[in-house]
Nucleic acid binder design. Structure first.
Lengths: 267, 267
DNA sequence: CTTGACCTTGACCTTGGGTCAGGGTTCACG
DNA sequence: CGTGAACCCTGACCCAAGGTCAAGGTCAAG
């Protein structure tokens, strides 16, 4: 009776396809595990097919459970061959890693949520409020967008002056003259860079700004490092390339302010 | 003043390293995004360095937010260039995917938790209870292990007989004679396969089993397909290769049962 | 005797980058 | 006015964890 069992070549175990279905993975994955030495190669039958016995299947189940939990394949081998206590410790480790991953993903989901509902991902609430106020004051959407971008850049590149920038916007928006001058400045985008009205406007803007000198004073703790200047440059001259007239306007205003003793970084 | 800006080659924007630090990624990653066309290559300065302006930085921030949320890089490009409403829909989609991922990870963590606390990942509670009972009845740990493996295999490979297998164990463990015979059977592992005591033991075991014929009747719904026999074989002859005497004992018991009219699959 | 479903090996593709090699640029210090 | 450190450039290869394709052998059923 038993000899018959061994003389029947087909019954010596499961084929790779059956074994793979057993642990719910693909045939290719099983072979991958063999190549990595994670699961020993089983005996082959007379035609070269792998034949899986119970021990192989159990091993596959164990490997799959760990791999499915995110344990790198390279670690699974030694882990399964370790003593029970080390195994238990390692399992706990894996569980902690999983928990961390879950929390990180939840954080990302929140970020995305905020991204979907405006710019709350990139800017603090105070800045969002200012942007909403800009829209209420009937500034053009393009202007609001440009200011939003400038805020984002300032926050990231020159955090020391971000608060100053924000405070400026917050306070100046209460000043109807400033609002009016700024809207006119935005219209200047379409002017010729040599338009004489630009100089006039620059003088008016500078005078208005100089009305509250406290808001023009950079913090004593000036930024450091050789890239400080280029960071200022990126923020200060954001989008100027789109409108040369604006570049000229800004340059003139800066000149006025410097002439009045205000410390404005060059570039 | 402005000419000076443009005549100063170094101030035309941030270098790749500064830009990368800005969005908190590596230089290599930024270049990777360029190669994928996700972020347009910025202008180069006179020495061939990439120089990043505000628009580039904003784009990098957006790309990073999406990539960080798990959106495949290949999709990010068209997503960012899509109209706002399609973008919003896509964002919602991404959020759903993230939620799914989180739930899957939590499921894995649970699985791992059960894996760490015994075999509850692989076996139903009823089976775990039986295994605990085996330990209480003072069966050797090796025997318990072997039975556990047999249960796992049976559940996966021959689910139609798994319940029968389990019911058998549950009921027979109340029978002191069965317990005694089984322990003796386990000791037979170390006997010579030709030991005459094996035949004796096989008769006793068969007689005991035949005491409750209901537990020996396979379900009418027998398994299907050409691999049914090999599946039975794997379960029935699990670990026999380790002890030829056990193989002989099992064979003899099967013979007795068949002689008594019990339907036992061959192989 | 053919058909279709398996099995075998081997070589290359994928994603999101990391690492190495070989060379050019810029900057601050002495 | 060097010189060293810290950048930058390109290009080529490497990783996990498999997937896909190719070219052929094997098996059971009609």
């Amino acid at each position: 009776m038993e000899e018959e069992r061994y003389s029947h070549p087909m019954a010596e175990g499961l084929t790779i396809g059956q074994a793979a279905a057993f642990v719910d993975i693909t045939v290719k994955t099983v072979r991958h595990y063999h190549r990595l030495g994670l699961v020993a190669e089983p005996e082959r039958d007379h035609s070269g097919y792998r034949r899986y016995g119970s021990a192989d299947l159990l091993r596959l189940v164990q490997v799959r459970a760990l791999a499915g939990a995110g344990v790198p394949l390279a670690e699974i081998g030694e882990l399964l061959d370790a003593e029970p206590e080390r195994f238990a410790t390692a399992l706990d480790d894996v569980r902690r890693r999983l928990t961390e991953q879950i929390e990180e993903l939840m954080g990302r989901r929140d970020t995305l949520h905020r991204l979907a509902h405006g710019d709350r991902a990139l800017l603090p609430d105070r800045a969002c409020a200012v942007l909403e106020r800009l829209a209420e004051l009937d500034f053009s959407p393009d202007y609001v967008t440009t200011q939003r971008e400038a805020l984002v850049l300032s926050r990231a590149l020159t955090p020391e002056v971000f608060d100053l920038f924000l405070a400026n916007l917050e306070h100046r928006l209460d000043d109807p003259e400033f609002v009016e001058l700024t809207k006119r400045g935005w219209e200047a985008r379409s002017w010729d860079p040599d338009d004489p009205r630009i100089e006039e406007l620059a003088s008016a803007v500078a005078a208005n700004l100089l009305g509250v000198r406290a808001l023009l004073t950079l913090p004593a703790k000036r930024p450091h490092g050789p890239d400080a200047a280029s960071r200022y440059g990126v923020v200060n001259h954001h989008r100027e390339d789109e409108a040369p007239s604006i570049a000229r306007l800004n340059g003139l205003v800066e000149g006025h302010l410097r002439a009045a003793g205000i410390d404005i970084p060059r570039q």
